[in-house]
Amino acid sequence: MVFLSFINNLINGVSLGSVYAIIALGYTMVYGIAKMLNFAHGDIIMVGAYVCFFMVSSFGLNPVFGILSAILVCTVLGILIEQLAYKPLRQANSLAVLITAIGVSYFLQNAAQLMWTSNPRIFPAIFGNGGLQLAGGQLMVPYKTLVTIGVCVIIMVGLILFTGKTRTGKAMRACSEDKEAAQLMGINVNRTISITFAIGSALAAVAGVLLCASYPKLIPTTGSMPGIKAFTAAVFGGIGSIPGAFLGGILLGVIEIFSSAYLSTELANAIVFLVLIVVLLVKPTGLLGKRTSEKV
């Protein structure tokens, strides 16, 4: 029994961690290429969840269509935010960009409150309530959990292949290292940054749907805490690193669920951040972060 509940907690941890990982992947890609922390990333998650909610619950459409519309709306929103809020600040110092990102975050939350009120909505069970029966029916893994973990793995592998093998992906890595040199190669840096925002925001939409499939209470600040935790996960794993964001996300989810199951629900978040601080003290670049050495 103790063992089964341990396994159950582990699965829940990996599932929550998968959501963090998907958000963290978006954070880390945008940071890697645009060299900015997009604090509005968490709120794009919320927008994605709302779009899917309305498509499915209000218009009665198929969840697949709901997810696709969420991805579409968030991608467009991400590109718009980048063009309107961040692009004009390309030459500005990073503090100005950071403050703008916080501003965009509040803007999205307040706009959501205005349009959709702060009354909680209950996100529909789009993956059903069933699950996989294991250990003779003593352990049930819900389908939503399986989908969440599966989607996360697919996204991570997809991103690794994309940045490693494709022309656009390699151009992104070039921009992340040296924008001026990338321009001299004929790479359109502005377009590359826009593509990165589009990908990050599409991932945020997916994360929003998966998050609300497991934690169905949807309010305008739904994305804010997961956004901060995913940022933590990205730093934890080594910001800028795709496998790092994945590992950091999963670990963070597992630590959070274990802390609340075995130690204290109230202290779960405190423990998560304590672990982060310890890791950063021991390894300032994060678990998989690379120390950049330059030869002159």
Binding site: K170, E177, L184, G186
Partner: peptide, 20 residues
């Protein structure tokens, strides 16, 4: 200062040279 892409392979650097 050359400004090659230090974290990419030699081959990938050359591919970037042919980006256009």
């Amino acid at each position: 200062g050359r400004r090659i892409f230090l974290q990419m392979t030699v081959l990938e650097n050359l591919e970037m040279g042919a980006f256009c």
